[in-house]
Design a binder for these strands. Structure first.
Lengths: 405, 405
DNA sequence: GGAATTGCTTGCAGACGACAATGAATTGAT
DNA sequence: ATCAATTCATTGTCGTCTGCAAGCAATTCC
């Protein structure tokens, strides 16, 4: 961190305050100039003057008058619903999803495309690029493209370094290729768990007043992300959050990553299904899917209960470790495992309660995600949106700041 | 994080830029107005105008002319060496240390006082308060007091929640008591590993260009702290960094903290000595101390080598987990274990190399601390200094901002 | 000793936000 | 129905602060 913080010139103040105002609008949602004035501490006049150009630029719009109260009704503001959009792509192992988002974060025509098994990266890339291209043509103005990729993702180099079970992408530089394809649109990439965490922050943590959110994405793999004060913690290379590869057993089995006893070996969906299929019963056969297990667990099937509880035990150990290291005050468990429901959550909570100091346990809330939208896609939008409009600098301070003023 | 960022008034700009300038001076060390102008991006004139009051207030002083070069010699600036001081206290289990620091971070007459074994907290408190009182009387002006405490420390409540092996302090509210004793001096408390990490950041990380430092304090206990861009990561309650209580063995022995298989059970000095004493030899008897082990390890004593290597294996596991979760680019191992030297470090590095992905291993530097000063005391100073002069807000934004302008 | 160089300081003008006053829209009491 | 009261938004004025440019200071090189 050599670069010292830059000083603020008098011109810089306006830009700074514009970002403050947009952040306030983003936090508050639909609100009046007065509201923004109050939370930002800026004068009403200053807010009015700052909003002006934002209206002209189609970033913010007036959305009618507020209802109740005495006196003049305030004019509600919100981010513009038309015109400017951010285009988001979520890459998964077997499919990819695309949606446009208006500046309010409302998705426009989300679509999902399958990726044929074993299809080479170049073909998939071509499918993706074509789908994006169609969207670019269809939307009025694209202010940014966001891409969420699975697995350990070296943000610095914008390269996925290992997608377990999916070697196709190895060596294919997706992000730079896409950037070359859309050279005029700022393109941001992120890790899917980090994106989902951001959505969870916005919808859950923020209203609880949480300061540090640990999001655990539990499903095929075990990923996680830490959100501190609204910003995702990325680490030096953007690799932070590989909770699945924290060992919970120093002398445990070898993992593909090189480590031994990784949480993922014990607690991923793959591990759970393997364990259950080994004990195949009439209900849960050797062909049992995760949905089958969810249903069986809900019905208190003994094998499902036992194996899911084992997973809960392991996951709780991983969570306990993260609590001791990162001290979050909210933990949200998302992805497929959220489907296991409250009994699963309770099993985790009971174990965590045993394993951390009482004063710490009291200070942390553990929940299952209950969002229905695609949190990864939405989080990808939030990431691009923050960087584009709210000035969340993610080090690579583009010199070509797109002139919003 | 309900509070939205505050906007900047035109007057606020000056204050903001003053902090930017002081940060630049803090980062650069002795330097000229021109140097500050360059790194901060502010006009030389602005720097000159900002420095004026700082000189008057005795925060900064001119320290002679710079040597080489053509043209007019620049006037070197540095923080003032006299006048203003910060008083720091480091509380340990068996002793406490006190030192004044001038604003350059140079300690003034460090002293260490023993804490008699079993002495009740009230008596120790009285000793501490008296010793501080003498310093307050002796130094010209005290701008702040910093206190570093060992063990899990609930910063929000300013209470130590569990000092292993030292129950005396349990229930005694040291920090509030001290604050009551020195009501006119801002008092800041921190966890010792976090303080040491700050010192390590300043002396090691900063010049390597590291972005995320993981400091591991390995000795009687295993603590740690993460420093991100110069700021210590504290978590929601200030409890972050309890690496010693991350489990490396889900089915391991029970720890006092409630968890099972905590790293501290396997890798603390206490564990190491117990293991060695159980295998007592002529050289390493049942009375062997840590120093004995260090000496024996240096001489390649087989028992010492074997047991220390075991500890290295465990510690490496903990470090690996932290790498996967926090993705630091520099790891410094400090406290007593640093005395074990390069062979110990190499053992750790070999193990970590096996357990993390190659591209990750290449991106992280692992070192032993080689600082000779008391890093905790110095870090306590840095913490208070940052909050007092550089505006590092640690949430509790005192309304009574002491007027430095 | 003068030109060139480099760093610090001063004069001036422009930008911007706070404050106060005005305008706009609405409620409720007379 | 009309007028005070209320509340939000907008406009005018003023003071502050920074950047720019010129000037001053100190030093080297010719």
């Amino acid at each position: 961190m050599r670069a010292t913080q830059k000083g603020l010139s008098i011109e810089g103040v306006q830009g700074h305050n514009r970002q403050v105002i947009l952040k306030a609008l983003h936090d508050l949602g639909t609100c009046s100039r007065k509201d923004i004035s109050v939370v930002s501490g800026l004068d009403q006049a200053t807010v009015t003057r700052a909003i002006g150009p934002l209206l002209d630029d189609g970033i913010v719009e007036e959305v009618g008058l507020v209802k109740g109260g005495r006196g003049r009704r305030s004019i509600n503001l919100d981010f513009s619903a038309g015109g400017r959009h951010i285009l988001c792509l979520r890459l998964q192992r077997r499919s990819f999803s695309i949606a446009g988002f208006n500046l309010r974060g409302e998705p426009v025509e989300p679509e999902e495309f399958p990726i044929p098994r074993g299809q080479p990266a170049a073909s998939t890339f071509s499918d993706i690029a074509d789908a994006l291209e169609r969207r670019v043509a269809g939307l009025q103005q694209i202010d940014g493209i966001g891409i969420a990729v699975p697995g350990p993702f070296l943000e610095r180099d914008e390269r996925v370094i290992l997608i377990t079970e999916s070697p196709e992408w190895q060596g294919f530089d997706l992000i730079p290729e896409l950037r070359a394809r859309f050279p005029n649109i700022p393109l941001h990439s992120t890790h899917d768990a980090k994106a989902a965490a951001l959505t969870e922050w916005r919808h859950t943590a923020h209203k609880n007043g949480a300061k540090v959110l640990l999001y655990v994405s539990a499903g095929q793999g075990i990923g996680s992300a830490l959100v501190v004060g609204g910003e995702v913690y990325r680490g030096a290379l953007g690799l932070a959050g590989e909770m699945g590869h924290m060992s919970i057993k120093v002398d445990g089995p070898q993992c593909k990553c090189g480590n031994t006893g990784c949480l993922e070996i014990f607690a991923s969906r793959i591990a759970l299904l393997r364990a259950i299929r080994e004990r195949a019963t009439a209900r849960l056969t050797t062909e049992a899917t995760f949905s089958d297990v969810v249903a069986a667990y809900a019905d208190s099937d003994p094998v499902a209960t036992e194996e899911v509880n084992k997973v809960a035990r392991y996951l709780a150990q991983g969570i306990t470790n993260c609590i001791n290291f990162a001290n979050p005050d909210l933990i949200v468990i998302g992805d497929e495992y959220a489907l296991l429901g409250e009994p699963f959550l309770d099993a985790i909570k009971r174990q965590v309660e045993k394993a951390v100091l009482p004063s710490v346990y009291r200070s942390v809330v553990i929940e299952l995600s209950n969002l229905t939208e695609d949190t990864v896609l939405k989080g990808t939008f939030l990431d691009v949106f923050s960087q584009t409009y709210l000035g969340s600098a993610r080090e690579t301070q583009d010199k070509a700041t797109n002139d919003t003023g």
